[in-house]
Amino acid sequence: MKSRTIIRWILRLLLGICFVWAAASKFQDPLAFAAAVASYEVISGIWARGVVLVLPWLELWVGIGLMIPGLKRGSAWVVWFLLLGFIGLHLSAWWRGLNIECGCFGAMGMLSGYGMLFARNSLLLLGATILIFLEIIRHREQKAGGSH
């Protein structure tokens, strides 16, 4: 029971820091982020600029939300879907043979090649999956405890 709580806290902290860091790098250099979004060749124009505007804020709030009791479960789900989307985008770019700039963590988070990119995002996705699973168990236990 106690070990599960510790794991939950560690995962929330790690994922939270990752997302706040990712948001901060995008705020710091929106132009580089815009160039990174364009390099995926999936969206352009108003949609690309929309992503440049919205994504940093969404990442910031889910990163903070993971630490806040009233937002942690919703944030964990949003993080999960975001990571799944990022992996899908990277797979698509790799499949098309694009030489992309990740745009994930700015210049500080540069990784060499798709392999490292997939490995990092898969690890984060695994962490988010475990976190959601543990939150569900905790929620059920609380409900069961409340009904007795």
Binding site: F27, L53, L60, L71, R73, G74, V78
Partner: peptide, 29 residues
Amino acid sequence: QILRECFTLMVLTSVGCGVSLILAWSPAP
């Protein structure tokens, strides 16, 4: 409750985008 939390996150994100647009941190789409 999860939907409510996601809605709160959407509202917070929208407020943030508004701040970005007002302070010209990011160009309007």
